[in-house]
Computed example of a mutant assay.
Amino acid sequence: MSPIDASSASRLQQEIEDSFDEELESELSESLLELLGDDEELEEAALRHANHLDRRSYFRELFRLQHELIRLQDWVVDQKLKVVVLFEGRDAAGKGGVIKRITQRLNPRVARVVALPAPSERERSQWYFQRYVPHLPAAGEIVLFDRSWYNRAGVERVMGFCSEDEVEEFFRSVPEFERMLVRSGIILLKYWFSITDAEQQFRFNMRIHDPLKQWKLSPMDVESRRRWEDYTRAKEAMLEETHIPEAPWWVVRADDKRRARLNCIAHLLAQVPFGEVAKPPVVLPPRVRNPDYIRHPIPEDMYVPEIC
């Protein structure tokens, strides 16, 4: 292998640093802690954050796992597997964060995220699972549900959007629905992200004080804080009624975001055995150069203004 010249090394360094950008931006939010005042509860939560996994170890392991996710993706496509992963948990539990790290380097044509809005009037009149079925994977696809049909056992039940009879019918139906999915060849994984009362309080306050994250805090989220105990009872009933051998629940300790992401991704990889997929070497052909080709200039006013 020929040595890398200074120009190429500099460019490579830029590419590596660019890979860190999203993570570095999220790290900046920690500086907002000082804006939260002298609240003792928040101070305790901040101290917990100080014990987080150090960034170097976190990035090293995250990139290793993301490399394994690419191998898994290749295997899913090659073997025509169908994978469904459900992510459930309280508001601000970190579901979106781990989904983002899973899909960050994957092909969006293979791995896609489903985050459905509240059902329409028509959808409310349908069979409950009907609006989820069209989003299930075909062969060679991975579908990640950012909240799923378990809305009925959680937010819908706690907020009174459905009756207790409908909840009971859901608990009767969902094990059979999931067994049917598994019998059809779908690999179904279910994760519950578990955070403490104090940690959710801390994260909600972070969102309140961070203009870039305020959009994440909906009126429903605010109301969920008041109904913490109702959500706890609903979660306990859901896990008890729907933890089945064919599709068990896996609980992720999520107070530490970094560890939660790494633990969840590592566990997901272990649930779908995969191997190497042989790929032909990629060889770039020489570019065709035609003597009559002339590259025409682009008008200056079509360029995006350079502000930096």
Rank of each mutant, 00 (worst) to 15 (best):
S2H: 12
D5W: 13
Q13F: 07
I16H: 08
E17W: 10
S19R: 14
F20L: 12
F20E: 13
D21G: 04
E27K: 00
E40Y: 12
E40F: 07
E41P: 06
L42Y: 14
E43N: 04
E44L: 14
A50Y: 10
N51T: 11
R55D: 00
R56K: 14
S57G: 11
R60P: 00
E61V: 05
L65Y: 02
L69C: 11
Q73C: 04
Q73G: 05
D78V: 04
L86K: 01
G89W: 15
R90M: 12
D91P: 12
K100F: 00
T103S: 01
R105Y: 13
L106H: 04
R109F: 10
V110G: 10
A111L: 06
V114K: 15
V114G: 07
A115F: 06
A115R: 13
S120F: 14
E121P: 06
E121M: 05
E121H: 11
E121F: 06
E123H: 08
R124T: 03
S125C: 06
Q126T: 01
Q126A: 05
W127D: 00
F129V: 12
A138G: 09
A139D: 13
S148P: 05
S148V: 04
N151V: 13
M159Y: 03
E166I: 02
F171G: 01
S173M: 06
S173W: 02
V174T: 01
P175A: 03
R179N: 00
R183K: 13
S184H: 12
G185Q: 07
K190N: 03
W192L: 09
W192K: 15
I195Y: 02
A198V: 01
E199C: 01
Q200D: 10
R203M: 08
N205I: 06
M206P: 05
M206Q: 14
L212E: 10
Q214V: 15
K216Q: 12
D221Q: 14
S224A: 15
R225M: 14
R226H: 07
R227D: 00
W228T: 04
R233D: 00
M238Y: 01
V251I: 15
A254S: 11
R259G: 02
L262N: 05
I265V: 11
I265D: 02
I265H: 04
L269A: 03
F274H: 14
P281K: 14
L284A: 10
L284R: 09
P285M: 08
V288T: 02
N290K: 13
P299W: 11
M302K: 09
I307H: 04
C308L: 13
